[in-house]
Computed example of a mutant assay.
Amino acid sequence: MKFDTKSIHAGANGNNPNNALNPPIFQTSTFVFDSIDQVKKVMAFESDDYVYTRGNNPTLRLLENRMAELECGNAAVAFASGMAAISSTLFSFLKPKDTVIVHKTLYGSSFNVVTKVLPQYDVNYKVVDMTKTDELEKVIDANTKVIYFETPSNPNLSIVDIKKVVEVAKKNDIKVVVDNTFATPYFQNPLEMGVDVVVHSATKYICGHGDVVAGIAVSKDVDYINTLKFDYMCEFGGVMSPFNAWLLLRGLKTLGVRMRQHEANAMKVAKFLSKHPKVKSVMYPGLEEFEGHEVAKSQMRGYGAMISFEIDGDLETAIRVVDNVKLIKLAVSLGDCETLIELPAAMTHSGYPKEELVKFGLTESMIRISVGLEDSEDIIKDLENALSNI
């Protein structure tokens, strides 16, 4: 099946109660048994029956199966949030004295987990520019167990060459974890390039409607996914609700359609911004002049809908822009039908040290846009009006 078909049908067994077209929400915490013999079989994984929703649930299982197929994996774990998926995956691979290497530009909360939380458990970290593979190779040592990055990265859209990083990692027996939130499985499948685990903030494009907080981890290694689910997701308790899983299944039905329109709008917005006299630079992988364009073109099937840009001014000038949009909404998050705008240094990435922003690929005057599904002319007109205030 092609992507649009799989996003609607993958993982379903066709046995919905009362011949319902859509799967029901199994809104239950507990499942009952006919006998102790049945309990033994379930506990020994000799049966696909359910025990307790913290471990599994029919609605969650359908979502996990569908996401596994869309990401070209063999199994997945649903989490209560993207950060639950990211932190649990990192904890599952790391122990005291180990080292994780991360790309210099990460989502703010991911950066905080790596630089503030993991060190409390005696886990070390190194930050490197992974767009330069030779720099990555220089910092690897015997304690390095995980390489973690986003591509495109949040918020400067830097592109990491997945195949090159995997090649370096495999030579050193290191696990590679990639956050695929910006690209979605519609535009990119890191598992097909040798990555060990793909994580998503499903809150974003997987949902698409701004009404769910959720996360997903996908791998080709079924044994690892079972460990991640039962030793980490279950025990840490980052459990997705059946209702949220159902909402994500609904969102997935239109993922391909939405991503095509998101990208079409983003390309028009990016070209508008790149020609505007008050815009200093535009960060969008779809622009030929963008530094990571060729790598993105080689490993992605499209360029997504996230744009960051630098205005010709300082922080106060950037604030004036975001304060003067009307149609576009000032908010954190991304991937919704609505176009959203924010200042990363003051919002999603406020945990980064202000005096070192440039080192991490950020500036105080950087503006990030999640281009939505409104008419592109309306989005551009709103930006044009806001930019006229500076």
Rank of each mutant, 00 (worst) to 15 (best):
Lys6Cys: 06
Ile8Thr: 02
Ala10Phe: 00
Asn13Ser: 12
Asn16Leu: 04
Pro24Leu: 09
Asp34Cys: 13
Gln38Ala: 10
Lys41Asn: 13
Phe45Ala: 14
Arg54Pro: 15
Asn65Ala: 11
Arg66Asp: 01
Ala76Glu: 00
Ala76Asn: 03
Ala80Glu: 09
Ser92Ile: 11
Val102Gln: 10
His103Met: 06
Leu106Ala: 04
Tyr107Asp: 11
Leu118Phe: 10
Pro119Leu: 05
Asp122Gly: 14
Val127Asn: 10
Asp141Met: 13
Glu150Ala: 06
Thr151Gly: 06
Pro152Phe: 08
Ser153Thr: 08
Val160Ser: 00
Val178Met: 05
Val178Gln: 06
Asp179Asn: 15
Ala183Leu: 07
Tyr186Asn: 04
Phe187Asp: 03
Gln188Pro: 03
Glu192Gly: 08
Glu192Cys: 09
Glu192His: 07
Gly194Ser: 03
Val195Gln: 04
Val212Glu: 03
Val213Thr: 11
Ala214Pro: 03
Ala214Glu: 03
Ile216Met: 10
Ala217Cys: 10
Ser219Cys: 05
Asp221Met: 03
Asp223Leu: 10
Tyr224Phe: 09
Tyr224Gln: 01
Phe236Arg: 14
Ser241Glu: 05
Thr254Asn: 14
Leu255Gly: 02
Glu263Cys: 03
Ala264His: 12
Ala266Ser: 12
Phe272Ser: 04
Val279Trp: 04
Phe290Glu: 05
Glu294Lys: 15
Ala296Lys: 00
Lys297Leu: 11
Ser298Met: 12
Ile307Leu: 02
Glu310Pro: 05
Glu316His: 13
Thr317Pro: 04
Arg320Ala: 10
Val321Pro: 00
Val322Phe: 08
Val322Cys: 09
Lys326Thr: 11
Ile328Thr: 04
Lys329Asn: 12
Leu330Tyr: 14
Leu334Phe: 13
Glu338Met: 12
Leu340Tyr: 11
Leu343Cys: 05
Pro353Lys: 03
Met366His: 07
Arg368Ser: 11
Ala386Ile: 00
Leu387His: 00
